[in-house]
């Protein structure tokens, strides 16, 4: 047992990595880091960040019906919803206020899972840092509303599955000629919407 051989072996490992970092690919001892603002790794489809609301055609009529299920189920209670009303103070099936305090939100994705109207989904952009936490980091309805096309762009397979299911439900409804009182019922959703 020669004192110092282990140290020499360790030194050889770092020297090897020093040398290979100049010409090897990342998985064989090359540089593993990515120079972030210039180069970016592709965002994985299932990646989830803060939520957003989906609208089909018109931002004035989002899929959200202000049922407040997500607000109730949110573990951190970061969602605040108020129903819109018509001039006669009769509540409408759309939100007047839909706020998400993303300083509180912990990106768990439970709102997305519980929403019966396929309305709220987890978003991709993660560079939301701001020095103004009251205005910039409290997302209002207008910040949150994004089109279905956008949803298709960030999560093609998930969105396609959701759309297919929605279409199937619509057709079923049409063929069964449902009574008007039942239109608000959530579409029967099993785990078909999962990507």
């Amino acid at each position: 047992m020669f004192f110092g051989l282990g140290v020499l072996r360790g030194l050889m490992v770092t020297l090897k990595n020093f040398v290979t970092s100049y010409f090897m690919p990342p998985d064989r001892g090359g540089l593993f880091t990515v120079e972030y603002p210039e180069k970016r790794l592709p965002v994985i489809e299932r990646f989830r960040n803060f939520p957003f609301l989906v609208y089909d055609k018109d931002p004035e009529n989002p899929r959200c019906v202000a049922c407040e299920i997500c607000a109730n189920e949110c573990p951190t209670k970061c969602i605040y919803i108020e129903k819109d009303t018509d001039p006669n103070k009769k509540p409408l099936r759309r939100p007047a206020i839909f706020d998400i305090d993303i300083t509180v939100c912990m990106n768990c994705g439970i709102c997305e899972e519980v929403c019966p109207f396929d309305s709220i989904y987890m978003d991709h952009p993660f560079e939301v840092a701001s020095s103004d936490r009251l205005e910039k980091l409290l997302f209002h309805k207008n910040d949150l509303l994004k089109s279905n096309d956008y949803f298709h762009k960030i999560r093609p397979t998930h969105a396609a599955a959701i759309d297919a299911r929605r279409r199937a439900v619509e057709e079923k409804k049409k063929s069964a000629a449902v009574k008007p009182s039942e239109t608000g019922q959530p579409p029967k959703a099993q785990n078909g919407g999962k990507p």
Partner: peptide
């Protein structure tokens, strides 16, 4: 990266559900 691919998040996975897994 694998965790992100299966659960959507790298560290705060929130992946398991009662009676199974999420995806």
């Amino acid at each position: 990266d694998v965790f992100e691919e299966i659960s959507g998040s790298r560290m705060m996975c929130n992946y398991l559900r009662f009676g199974g897994v999420k995806c």
